[in-house]
Design a protein around this nucleic acid. Structure first.
Lengths: 316, 316
DNA sequence: AAGCTTCATAACATAGAGTTATCTTATTTT
DNA sequence: AAAATAAGATAACTCTATGTTATGAAGCTT
């Protein structure tokens, strides 16, 4: 015989609160409703659940057994409600985030770790991609948030973009690079060193080409290409190679003291790093919460970087 | 947010059986029903439970969490069903049984032990009483079964009585009583010994008076009265006292070799030991099962006693 | 015995679950 | 690539169960 779990809940409530009226109140119903439910249950089971004509309602053995199961059902229902609640407040769920590889590895992953300290139930699914691919994934609904450099002026329809950092680059090197110990740098100083090239489809690749042209380096020697930030960092810190990286990436790595930026002013692209989303309204609470977190954290980071920049002498 | 436990059950069924159609089948509903239920749930929670437009239905993280609770609810519901099933077959529940003290202690308690070996979930609530009180308790519904001596010819309205044993008594003594070693007994042999008297309200008390009158003992010396069977047995086996006990009680005690019956034929009351109930139809399955057990066990006992009697020479 | 509290019953409105038939769409097959 | 297949979504309708308020009946208390 299949029993309605709600009936078992009611039994548990009645037994635990010691009366029909109280039980009804406990479960949020009117007294006649539970009275009738009990009567129906008794008729269906074919056995009394309470001793009739006794005023402090006395449950049957059978009733007590069933109430035990009802208690479990109530407990499961409560935790289910709690699950929904945490989900609705954004404390549970999944965020699918994508971004350009170097920036994700160098900046975002640290922020994610911080976010998860306060949101252990939120699962982050990270993927890498460049802007066209990211946009495609956003449109297809396979990505909740993209973090990438974008020119806000040329934003296509159907996207929302919140800029968080200027897309400023630096010439990066290992922290023991000989050029760091020199005074004002000139073209002749830089020219001898080999370069690490980002993937050709990366925005950084274009940036590097522009920079090299601007400072007059013509015959670039590419010693390494195709690696992620981890590989680039390893090679930079164990060689005299140079590369172009977002300033924020070098800034975040300052703690580890493996990367450094050459004190030479270079041109900046017309891009902003920011948070790109499709329809921001349709996002679930977890995604919204994550976005808010990223935005405020970037706000802080932006301020710190600006302060740091003012304390640094940039030379031409 | 309060969720309907049945919805969580459905979620669990869908997730576990891997599809809407199969889930519906698993839980015994039609496919459109669960489809609609899922849609309603999603609307209420405000979040998708399954990835839309994917054909092997892919549950959301949230859905998986909720399905976990649903699984618990299903489990609780199943054990609840099992509880009801065992109850309905009489393998669970409570039987309130009352009877005359000596007979309950000497015969019924042994049968109860046997019954409970096959019915560990059945609780027996035993009480003592004499016939008028037992009838009153039956009428008041505070007793399911009474086991007592009754004259079937004088049965009041509203009672059912199933006779199981003739109300035959014997003169009982300790197993080392000197009279047991004598040949044919005469009045003069019995006269010197003291007697143990049952309580005055007990049927046995009247029986004893009749027997003593029949065999011609006039000045009875009562050495003990008011005890239960345990006390009587202890005293009988440690003294030369005599008493009147139902033959079945002495018979059941034969294994312990502490009680014996004098080989002297005495008159028997016009009573039958039997099972007295109020309205037999209204009884729950457990009570019915217990009654059936008692009846068949008494049937066996009755046969064994009769065989035993035939092998015993009763002397006048 | 009167009064109070608590459960039972009645009557009616409504939401949800059940059904079958049919449409839409994702995936598989040829 | 188009057709076939399988599975989920919708629609329309019935019926059960729940919810409501008002009121009756029955224990328990004082």
């Amino acid at each position: 015989m299949k029993l309605d779990p709600r009936h078992l809940e009611i039994l548990a409530a009645i037994v635990d609160s010691g009366g029909l009226t109280e039980g009804a109140q406990a479960i949020g119903r009117a007294q006649p409703s539970v009275s009738r439910t009990v009567a129906m249950l008794e008729a269906r089971i074919g056995a009394p659940l309470f001793d009739k004509n006794k005023r402090p309602l006395v449950p049957t053995e059978l009733c007590l057994s069933l109430a035990g199961e009802g208690r479990r059902i109530l407990a499961a229902g409560n935790t289910a409600s709690a699950i929904v609640a945490t989900f609705r407040t954004g404390h549970r769920g999944m965020v699918r985030i994508g971004g350009t590889p170097v920036f994700m590895d160098g900046v975002i992953s640290t922020l994610i770790a911080e976010f998860q300290q306060n949101h252990p139930q939120v699962r982050i699914e990270q993927s890498y991609g460049y802007v066209p691919e990211l946009m495609h994934q956003l449109v297809a609904g396979r990505l909740d948030v993209a973090i990438c450099p974008t020119n806000p002026a040329a934003l296509p329809q159907g996207f929302q973009f919140v800029p968080v950092l200027p897309g400023r680059n630096v010439i990066a090197c290992g922290s023991h690079h000989p050029l760091l110990r020199k005074g004002p740098l000139r073209l002749a100083d830089i020219a001898p060193y080999p370069w690490i090239a980002p993937p050709a489809s990366s925005p950084l690749y274009e940036d590097m080409r522009h920079i090299l042209r601007d400072i007059g380096v013509n015959d670039t020697r590419i010693s390494f290409s195709g690696g992620t930030l981890a590989s680039m960092t390893a090679i930079l810190s164990n060689s005299d190679a140079l590369t172009v990286l977002p300033y924020s990436v070098v800034f975040m790595a300052r703690r580890q003291r493996v990367l450094a930026a050459l004190s030479i002013r270079i041109g900046h692209p017309e891009r902003m790093l920011g948070i790109l989303t499709g329809d921001a309204e349709a996002a679930n609470p977890t995604v919204r919460r994550f976005r808010r977190f990223i935005e405020t954290e970037f706000g802080n980071l932006s301020r710190v970087i600006q302060q740091h920049e003012q304390n640094t002498v940039w030379r031409d």
